[in-house]
Amino acid sequence: MITTVASKALPVDEELKIQKNRIEPENDTGSKKRISVVTGIHGDELEGQYVCFELIRRIKEQKENLKGIVDIYPAMNPLGIDSITRGIPAFEMDMNRLFPGDIEGNMTEYLAARIMEDLTGSEVVLDIHASNIYLTEIPQIRVNAVHEEQLIPLAKEANVDFVWVHGASTVLESTLAYSLNSIGTPTLVVEMGVGMRITKSYGDQMVDGIFNLMKKLGIWEGKTAAVRQPIISRNPKDVAYLNAATGGLFVPAVRHGAQLKEGELIGRIINPLSGGVRDEVRAPMDGMLFTIREYPIVDEGSLVGRLLRTL
């Protein structure tokens, strides 16, 4: 059943609505266990759109196997999705810096607070992101070190290739995931693919992961595919950031996910005006390239890739 989680009137003849689709078992099982899938907080990230579609389609195919509640929120930031805007248009504000929100606050804070209220109490929430328009990521889950204990067991069931435990930072305290985790609703942040695109194979991989999670939580009784064992990285020293030494156009020599030897060429930064190569980006250690630059224009400092050390 599609319902409205929060709504506000806009100035000219339009209602802003955040909607969700709740799927429940045909016959009431008495279980109130619930999994929530959330995406579209960043309006330019679309990978989660396909995940929502495919998840609903596959549940409906075998509805008899559903034993709990599945809540799907495909568009947390509808105005952003419609206008290819990362943040909330007009407010120039990153929606993922507004949580837990404020029911008495301005429009954006109110929406954030209503979303929090609605998600609270889920067995698990998946917040699906798609990196940004500049970088492509292999399917991964990012975990704030302060919530590591509760989240790693769940992250292992989600069929991702990589779980990245990162350090705490004050700025990240205003994300949806941090806010929900702080009040005891486990929330996994998925990053996969690239902004403005849909990578179907990643979407299918993620849907398999969600079914597996549902099975572990007793929400699904149908068949599920075996899930991948993710690499779990806790030590910041195992991740190398590759920042452009100079501006230009980045032309990759390998694909993301590649296993690289130290010194191997990752890509070149070229100058189309002079025909020269401004810099060569090489692997600083043996490792797996889990992030690579998708958008070719780089400035000095722009991230062109991230490498996870081979242990």
Binding site: R86, E92, Y241, N243, I297, V298, D299, E300, G301, S302
Partner: peptide, 26 residues
């Protein structure tokens, strides 16, 4: 344009900065 040309980040959200980081951190 209000924020940084390529990646739309805000320099006034990057202090104290990082010399090996992204453009606006630098």
């Amino acid at each position: 344009k209000r924020f940084w040309t390529v990646d739309n980040t805000d320099i006034n959200r990057m202090f104290p900065g990082y010399d090996l980081g992204e453009t606006t951190q630098r």
